[in-house]
Amino acid sequence: MMEILDPTVPPSPGAASSIAYAERPASLAGKRIALIENTKFNSDRLLQKIGDILTTEYGAAETRMWRKQNASVPAHEEVIDEVRRTCDVMVAGIGD
C-alpha cells in the first residue's frame, strides 16, 4: 500500500462558484442600463445594438457604455463604482 496527495484545491470563498448574484429585475422598464465594452473590435457596436433593443423593445430608460482597460482583466474599480451608483442593470460579455 502507498498514499498519494491531491494536487488540486477545493474552490475557495470568493471563487466563481460561490459568487452571490444580484437579484434579477422582473422587468427592464425604466431601468438604466450599463454596457461594459471589452475593447475588442466591434464589441462597442454589438453592445450598442443590444442596448438599443433593450430601450426600444423592453422599455429601458437609457444606456451608457464604459470601456474596460483591456479584454483580459475585470472592469476596474472606478467603473464598477460608477455603474453601481448610476445604473440598475449591467450587460457585459467577452467574445471575438
Partner: peptide
C-alpha cells in the same frame, strides 16, 4: 490522501481524477 495498492494504480488514479496533462505522472507520495 488517497490510498493505492502500488505505483501503477497511483498513475491510473491520477489519470482518472483528471490530474495529468495526458502523459503518465510520477505518483506524489
Amino acid at each position: 490522501r488517497y490510498p493505492v495498492a502500488d505505483p501503477d494504480e497511483a498513475v491510473e488514479l491520477c489519470f482518472a481524477r483528471g490530474w495529468t496533462d495526458g502523459l503518465p505522472v510520477v505518483p506524489p507520495t
